[in-house]
């Protein structure tokens, strides 16, 4: 038995050391292509059994969106039904969303913090933190940053009247801050947006959101008049808490987006 088995085993070991890795890679690639194709086929089969695209009788259009559209303006005061939905009917969901963003920022902060001595990679990143000032980028940024900031504020403040809202406007504001920091260096940006400012702004926005919406829900559930005026639908100051919540969410998102940039560009925030 031993005499018979030995050459087979040695041959297999020889073959494995010689061709094992490329053969495994080819097998892996073939298997993954087959998996993806079969997955796509199953999904396409499912798509062919779905109701047609753009059909008014689509079962997804049931009593829930009907209620949102027909009574949304009376309930929330917001013309933008999506804003009224995510910041009034399902406000705690949005709160948890903002908390997830905050948690991601905290996790990135924990992962990228370095306690030990600086490695070669860290010193390379520190060298690149403030590269030579680039005149072209600085001129373009000085033109574009105010306009982008203005546009972000417009999108946040008109979130209950037109497309937009806290998340998209906050992302625009964060992009403007990132453009400023990449043009003029993070050192100069740190003069007015320090790490502590970012941290406190995010925490303050989340606290304000939780308190305001918690009060509104508590009052509403117990039948107390919350004392929040709805205003006339369509005016800039209307829709009760929604503009304030949009501002809170927008500031938090802008700070988190900028914090991501700071953390990834400097490796470690000092």
């Amino acid at each position: 038995m031993k005499m018979q088995n030995k050459p087979v085993g040695r041959g297999w070991v020889n073959w494995k050391t010689k061709h094992g890795k490329p053969a495994f890679r080819r097998l892996y690639a073939a298997l993954s292509v087959v998996t993806c194709l079969s997955f796509a086929c199953v999904l396409l089969f499912m798509v062919s059994a779905l109701p047609p695209f753009g059909d008014p009788g689509n079962p997804a259009f049931n009593e829930v969106p009907r209620k949102y559209i027909e009574e949304g303006v009376q309930d929330t005061g917001a013309l933008n039904i999506v804003a009224g939905m995510i910041l009034d009917y399902r406000a705690f969901d949005t709160f948890a969303e903002a908390c997830v963003l905050f948690t991601a920022a905290a996790a990135v902060l924990i992962l990228l913090r370095s306690d030990g001595p600086l490695s070669a990679f860290d010193s390379l990143i520190q060298e690149m933190e403030d590269p030579r000032p680039n005149v072209i980028l600085m001129q373009t940024a000085s033109l574009l940053v105010p306009i982008i900031l203005l546009f972000g504020c417009y999108v946040i403040l008109n979130g209950h009247l037109s497309p937009g809202g806290g998340f998209s406007g906050g992302a625009i504001l964060g992009a403007a801050l990132i453009l400023y920091a990449s043009a003029y260096g993070t050192k100069r940006a740190r003069r007015f947006i320090h790490y502590n400012v970012l941290r406190r702004t995010i925490a303050l926005c989340l606290y304000f959101y939780a308190l305001a919406k918690g009060y509104a829900f508590y009052a509403g559930a117990n039948g107390i008049d919350a004392g929040i005026p709805k205003g006339t639908p369509g005016a800039l100051f209307s829709a009760g808490l929604i503009p304030l919540l949009n501002i809170a969410v927008g500031l938090a998102v802008a700070c988190v987006v900028y914090l991501f940039y700071i953390l990834f560009s400097t490796g470690e925030f000092r």
């Binding site: 009907r66 949102y68 559209i69 303006v73 039904i81 939905m85």
Partner: peptide, 19 residues
């Protein structure tokens, strides 16, 4: 798009806002 325009509030005038 589900943004109330011109005071029309019928469910059959707008697309589904939930998705």
């Amino acid at each position: 798009a589900p943004i109330i325009a011109g005071g029309i509030q019928e469910a059959d005038a707008y697309v589904n806002p939930v998705p």
